[in-house]
Structures are given as C-alpha cells and as structure tokens.
C-alpha cells in the first residue's frame, strides 16, 4: 500500500484534515471518510454524473478525481446546497416539477444544473439538454428535469414561477 498523504479540505463550510491513500477517489473520500453519502456512484467509467460535486465552485465528477488532488480546495456537495433551511432554487425546481423519481441521479443532476446556471443564467432548452450530457437519468426521460432547471433559472433571475402542475 502506498504511503498515505495528508490533505486538508473544506467541505460544505467545514474544514477536514485527513490522511488518505493516494488512490482513494474523491467520491469514496466524501462517502466513506466524511460520511457524506448524498454523492452517488452509478458507473465505473466516468459517464453517469451521479457523483458530481463542486470543487472551488466548479462541477466535477468526484469519481474521476483523487482526493489528494483537492487538497486545499473548498467543496460543496448536495448536502451543503440548501442554505439556512432554504432549498437552492434548483432543488426547489426538481421538487416542484417532478424532476426526480428514484432520486439516485438527482444529487449529481442538481449539482450539474447549479453549475450550468452559474455560467448561463438564461439557458435555452437545447442548452440545458446539452449541458446535461454528462448526467444520466433512467427514470424521468429528462423532460421534467429540463422544466425544473427552467424553473430554477427563472427564479434565480427573479422572475415569477409556477409550481407543480401537470403539463397537459
């Protein structure tokens, strides 16, 4: 076993110092060492996006980063997204628009959507779909995810939004 390396990271505002094996993936560090199991693993080839977290404000696939690489970084996981008991507008959008079913892809999907809206506050439907190419959902067929992100985008822009209504 390779020698462990000391890392120091801030996750959801809390600082952690840990000794990690260099090969430990960030997703395993978050889930197993820190107990933040909201970040999921859905594949072994970096395709599915269930593991997306933010590292220094950027969405990354935590299954494709070693924990040692984020030494000194500030991370946000799904558990840290709501602030002061209020859901992030993207979380709210997913709830209002039935953007999830089994909920397994949802944390990664939400974290990817937050990154998108930071970079593009007013995305078209096509831009949203393109931006989700790294996140697989097997339940929803994506339409309500798109609606959820549009809801969040409108809310973040300060526009009025409507809640849960069936689409027909």
């Amino acid at each position: 076993m390779a020698e462990k390396v000391r890392i120091s990271v801030t996750v959801n505002g809390v600082q952690h110092t840990s000794e990690v094996e260099p090969r430990q993936l960030l997703v395993h560090y978050l889930r197993e060492t820190l107990g933040l199991t909201g970040t999921h693993i859905g594949c072994d080839t970096s395709q599915c996006g269930a593991c997306v977290v933010h590292v220094d404000g950027q969405a990354v696939k935590s299954c494709t980063v070693f924990a040692v690489q984020v030494d000194g970084s500030s991370l946000t996981t799904i558990e840290g997204l709501a602030k002061d008991g209020h859901y992030h507008p993207v979380q709210e959008g997913f709830w209002e628009k039935h953007g999830l079913q089994c909920g397994f892809c949802t944390p990664g999907m939400i974290m990817a959507a937050v990154d998108l809206l930071k970079k593009n506050p007013n995305p078209s439907e096509g831009e949203i779909r393109h931006a989700l190419e790294g996140n697989l959902c097997r339940c929803t067929g994506y339409q309500n995810i798109v609606l959820a992100i549009q809801y969040a985008a409108a809310k973040l822009r300060g526009e009025p939004v409507t809640g849960a209504v069936a689409d027909d």
């Binding site: 970096s46 996006g49 997306v52 950027q58 990354v60 696939k61 990817a112 990154d115 790294g134 996140n135």
Partner: peptide, 12 residues
C-alpha cells in the same frame, strides 16, 4: 471544445 465530453469533463 464545447463538443468535448460534457461540462464536468471540460471543467477538469
């Protein structure tokens, strides 16, 4: 570049 991978891949 926008055609490469996906946004997370392009971030890293």
């Amino acid at each position: 570049i926008e055609q490469i991978g996906d946004p997370m891949v392009r971030n890293k």
